[in-house]
């Protein structure tokens, strides 16, 4: 899923200054699960904004809502009235949602309330970590199901660097060296020989370096 993180409150404050009727619009899918943009966070952020404005002696009217999934136009229809009646929408969806909203409501100011951080998973309650970089060309079969692109700080492709210490990455003792994990796992799977294969040069075109990506499935299009 997409993991998001709410922007610093000061940044949000600046962003919304000058707007006095705001729709804080959450998204109940990925970012809700990462506790950044679900209805629960919408309420908290709205309350903070109101208090902040009150202290500044400025009026603000906030409408709180959340769409089931902000990255689908169909789900954006239900908030049409609310969008129409505000000066700006503060979206707590991921970047996809924010853009979908902007596209669906071209005349409205749409502001991002959070940073879309990565594609990852919930390690445990309250802890999320990155797993996939969306490179468009998966090699997990070769690396024991652990991605060196997303999880190696340097994105190294052919084994660990010299900074791998006791299984940890040199950037922080809290970060595992993914290459150590790969080697451990392949050893356990008795597939260490897979690493003897020289990886061909990776095609980064499909990773976005070749321009905005798009997929079309003819059989499904109208």
């Amino acid at each position: 899923m997409i993991v998001g993180q709410q922007k610093d409150f000061d940044e949000i404050k600046k962003m919304i200054s000058g707007y006095n009727r705001i729709l804080v619009l959450g998204c109940q899918t990925c970012v809700a699960i990462s506790f950044a943009g679900g209805m629960r966070e919408v309420e908290i952020l709205a309350s903070m904004i109101r208090m902040d404005r009150k202290m500044a002696g400025q009026d603000i009217e906030i409408v709180e809502d959340a769409t089931l999934r902000q990255c689908d136009f169909e789900f954006l229809d239900s908030v049409e009235n609310r969008v129409d009646n505000c000066d700006a929408v503060l979206s707590l969806a991921c970047g996809v949602g924010v853009q979908a909203l902007a596209e669906r409501y071209p005349d409205k100011v749409i502001l991002p309330g959070l940073n879309t951080t990565f594609m990852g998973l919930t390690e445990k309650m309250g802890v999320w970590s990155e797993r996939c970089a969306g490179c468009g060309n998966c090699i997990l079969d070769k690396t024991g199901g652990l991605c060196p692109i997303a999880r190696c700080s340097k994105g190294l492709f052919n084994g660990p660097c010299g900074g791998s210490m006791d299984g940890k990455c040199e950037i922080s003792p809290d970060v595992d060296c993914v290459w150590q994990l790969i080697i451990d796992r392949l050893t356990a799977l008795n597939q260490l020989e897979k690493l003897e294969e020289i990886f061909p040069i990776k095609d980064w075109d499909v990773s976005g370096h070749g321009g905005t990506r798009k997929i079309v499935r003819e059989d499904l299009t109208a």
């Binding site: 208090m51 009150k54 202290m55 500044a56 002696g57 400025q58």
Partner: peptide, 14 residues
């Protein structure tokens, strides 16, 4: 809470 005091003083300033 500053919420009350600031709101009052700010509105006076205006």
């Amino acid at each position: 809470i500053p919420l009350k005091t600031k709101a009052i003083s700010n509105s006076k300033e205006e």
